[in-house]
Nucleic acid binder design. Sequence first.
DNA 1: ACCGTAAGCGGACCAGGGTCCGATTGTCTT
DNA 2: AAGACAATCGGACCCTGGTCCGCTTACGGT
Lengths: 222, 222
Amino acid sequence: MTEPFSPFFVPQDDLGGLTDLALLPTGETPQLRADAARNRTRLLEVAARLAAERGIANVTMEDIACGAGVGKGTVFRRFGDRTGLLVELLSHHEQQLQAAFLSGPPPLGPGAPPTERLHAFGSAVIRHEHAHRDFYLAAHMEPGRRRTSPAYRFRLAHVCMLLREARLDGDNELVGHLLLGYLETVLVDHLLTDRAMSLERVEAGWRDLVDRYTGRWSRCTG
Amino acid sequence: MTEPFSPFFVPQDDLGGLTDLALLPTGETPQLRADAARNRTRLLEVAARLAAERGIANVTMEDIACGAGVGKGTVFRRFGDRTGLLVELLSHHEQQLQAAFLSGPPPLGPGAPPTERLHAFGSAVIRHEHAHRDFYLAAHMEPGRRRTSPAYRFRLAHVCMLLREARLDGDNELVGHLLLGYLETVLVDHLLTDRAMSLERVEAGWRDLVDRYTGRWSRCTG
DNA sequence: ACCGTAAGCGGACCAGGGTCCGATTGTCTT
DNA sequence: AAGACAATCGGACCCTGGTCCGCTTACGGT
């Protein structure tokens, strides 16, 4: 983690049709003062270290402030609240995912047919979130904000784009939300952990879902 | 609300295949002492009243304890935590829903073909949760517990039963979770409120989803 | 009626997230 | 270099959910 803490990549165009989705915060990082920038970095470094040591659930905001040698007010000024801090901690990983979708090799990146890309998207998200599941679970505490976060919007725009490529008609925004709902960290974790399902089974469910929405199926009886 | 606070109805059999689902708390209500029962009722009444007056989000646990003339410890002893109290507050409404599915008139209740019942199920849940959405949103604060609550399990078992009636094969438990994911209060509320979709549109999405999973479609190309 | 016991009670106490505001410090202008 | 100004800092403070434990009380048995 040499330079892990840059802001999210967010799509600048609306990726087609979903115009409202484009009100994403543009560049962010509106010129922090030197000391503020230094503190920001220190705080994230300390947070990452403490999380690695004892698990993010056992790290309080005060721990982080204290470890970085600043006051608690500074932490909340910078990140808004705990969720905001966690989201920024995850941004590094999110960017890796986003890069893979945008410009990585097929079938995840461009070049493969859209259905293949959707299949790969699901597997990638499931595995990615499972690998960092304590972070994602901690960051999802407030369910209301999930769907307005840049990361969610990015995924939605991406899925909707692939859906548009793969099928002729249909309510793509609705279907996009539905698909992302299947990939929700809490759901996948529940299936894998509490219900003891295998990763393969959950991934098979995803492929089946994608197939049912991407024109490989047709109506046969009324 | 004369006698609103009885425990959830929970299915006693596993409704087929989902054996683990049957570890539902059986009868509950294990003989409270007279004073405890009285306090329990008073607490729920006070909570309901205060929630009606100022919205559940503006009612603290101490308000409730105080309004019922008991100590805070009593509240937590009885309900475990805030979520537990909210769940019991919702149990009255949940029971109405459950009764409608189990024994109400078709197409929601028995008698209609399973696909019709699934269609009706979605509309009923969407409208029901939307009508009480502040409660459901408040109760869903802790996303990890959602899927282990009796109410969720009941809905899952019901949906799985209808799926088994409607289709020959497939991973019904997975599909059940997927379907319920679409009905999630936070998602529906986001679509209706933040994304300004119409109820009809969200319901149409549900019917489409159900149709794609209940054998009215078949694979046409590999 | 009496008693032993387990259940219930209550309010002091704690922790951790989030707010506030006077003091401080970087930065820009002249 | 000095001054003005806004951004930042920090830690005391508040709120609320949740815990603890010594005291009280209902209730079944005799």
